[in-house]
Amino acid sequence: MKKFIVLFLAACMLLGLAACGRQESTSPTGQADPNAGTAAVDPSAPIEFDMQTSEEKHIVTIGTIDKSLFEGPILITSFGQSTDASTLDTALGRVSGVNYTYKAQAIADEMASYKTVIIAVGASTKGLGAAGIKDDEELARAQAIMAKLKETGATVICAHIGGQTRRGALSDKLADLVLPQAKLIILKEDANFDYKFTKYAEANNLPITLIFAAKDTVQVMNDIFGK
């Protein structure tokens, strides 16, 4: 019996090994929610779609940007506490001669002091966790800020620069809050796989700047705010 089982096992293994050789490869299908608890696997196998930016053409602007809209004082804040707001902070910091305030967790009451508000849209579970903020708290803060900005009439820039991995239920909710009041969209284009942002911009006659990589934010900030 013992011999039989050992042989059976060995046969199993050999059979298995033989089978290995001729199998076709699998391709992953399911698209995991990047906000889901434990992301054990690739949350974002790149999605193929028609992109307007490319390795050769890093920045594409559709529509015309009226630079005179964006006067100081300027605030950079975050909706979703991802690292994107600090990227904008760094990028704008490299434009010489611009004074601005960077406050990832700014609150509605502070909005009265700013004429231009750049909002880095995109939720990060890690970032929210690091800041000790719950999803609905962040959503409430965002709602309050948007309501206040409607009153003050400040110019809003909706910046979604986290790319495809930054899309998700909460991120989209936050983006939908910002878009109706935005005067300009800055978008890292791989996040546009469902054309959500370009379609919105087209329907509402809104200028949109598509970028290929995060580093392009430096150029974009320079184009908008550079003297």
Binding site: T83, S86, T87, D89, T90, A91, G93, Y102, S124, K126, G127, G129, A130, A213, A214, K215, T217, V218
Partner: peptide, 21 residues
């Protein structure tokens, strides 16, 4: 922001180095 600055610098050198919380 310091870390993102490094990340952008690396990107300008065509290198990836994300910064995460």
């Amino acid at each position: 922001s310091i870390a993102q600055g490094m990340s952008l610098d690396m990107e300008f050198d065509d290198l990836t180095m994300r910064a995460e919380f």
